[in-house]
């Protein structure tokens, strides 16, 4: 890694000032897992790392994990290990607990944070190779279009075909989370508005401006009889990125599903909310046949590349599995 200065501001205001002073040549650092990786790979060489872990007590909200009114707040510096073991994430928010516990490895989860997980850069091998062209690095083409695209997007792709790398993003989108961002002013966004599609701007995956810091996520008060779940398929049980993920949230009363959210991960450049699947399920009694129909609807618009058509049945099967589990309908043999 190139030499750099570690800055340790005590307040978010100072951190923001430092970042705005050197927008092209500084980086905010929380757990630093993805950032250090990109620096080791020669993708970035910031002259200054602005350390969020050294923020003082006045910014305790960055580390908060607990009730927020009738909902739940999660500070950006909360680690995935803390989330995975948090008892406050009961059945209503189980999708987030399961997602956090499945990401990366136990040692990475002890360092990686909510904020860093949401804002990490894509894992596409063309992006991650310092010598290869990529739209995200200012290049003129997405090599995944005609290259090795086994792990790329089947939904919402183009002109870049990355899949969004954040596991927490999938679960938080299903749980209708909001994110609080602080720059010169504070703003709160539905989490869906945090993510930027490649059609909007191929060079970025999130909507934060230089000097803005993601402070916390807020989960709304759970609906009546709310339950949720998450699952991922990987080539390996650990140490691996998902091939596909599914997160589901619903209120289940007398077997009838309402307020349904269906989100697929690692199939699109953003966490992919399927309104088609939600419409198929909303207000109806849970059943095996309905779940199969919803899974079909969720992937109806999929446009696979050369090597990733396998993701269609994979994501369908995964979504059905999660729906069965969340609704308590036994899986068919």
């Amino acid at each position: 890694m190139q030499p750099f200065v570690l800055s340790r501001p005590k307040t978010l205001a100072e951190a923001g000032d430092l970042a705005r002073a050197q927008p092209q040549d500084s980086a905010l650092r929380a757990g630093g897992i993805d950032l250090i990786d990109r620096m080791k790979e020669g993708l970035e060489a910031p002259a200054r790392l602005i350390e969020l872990r050294w923020l003082g007590e006045s910014e305790a909200v960055m580390r908060a994990l607990g009730p927020d009114g009738e909902g739940l707040q999660i500070g950006a510096l909360v680690t995935l290990a803390q989330l995975a073991g948090h008892e406050g994430l009961g059945e209503a928010y189980a999708a987030l607990r399961q997602a956090a516990g499945s990401a990366a490895t136990p040692t990475i989860r002890n360092a990686a944070t909510l904020g860093g997980n949401l804002l990490q850069r894509p894992r596409c091998w063309y992006f991650r190779h310092a010598d290869l062209v990529c739209l995200k690095k200012g290049g003129s083409a997405c090599l995944a279009v005609s290259g090795e695209n086994k792990y790329h997007a089947i939904l919402g792709g183009g002109p870049s075909f990355i899949v969004h790398p954040s596991t927490l993003a999938c679960a938080l989108t299903a749980l209708d989370a909001q994110v609080v961002i602080r720059g010169t002013e504070a703003r709160t966004l539905p989490i869906a508005e945090l993510f930027v599609t490649p059609k909007q701007d191929a060079k970025r995956e999130h909507a934060l401006q230089p000097g803005e810091v993601l402070v916390r996520a807020i989960l709304p008060k759970p609906g009546a009889e709310q339950r949720s779940g998450y699952a991922a398929v990987k080539e390996k049980q650990s140490h691996d990125w998902p091939l596909a993920e599914a997160a589901v949230k619903m209120s289940l009363q007398s077997g009838v599903m309402t307020d349904v959210r269906v989100v697929l991960g690692h199939v699109a450049p953003i966490p992919w909310r399927s309104r088609e699947a939600e419409a198929a399920l909303e207000g109806k009694p849970a059943s095996e046949a309905l779940f199969a129909e919803a899974a079909k609807a969720a992937l109806a618009e999929a446009r696979p590349l050369r090597d990733n058509a396998y993701k269609i049945p994979l994501a369908q099967g995964l979504l059905r599995e999660v729906l069965h589990r969340v609704a308590g309908v036994p899986l068919p043999e």
Partner: peptide
């Protein structure tokens, strides 16, 4: 690093050396 001594507020800096 001259910035280390001249940092504003309570912010402290380490390096680059």
């Amino acid at each position: 690093d001259p910035g280390a001594a001249a940092s504003p507020g309570e912010e402290t800096a380490v390096g680059p050396g």
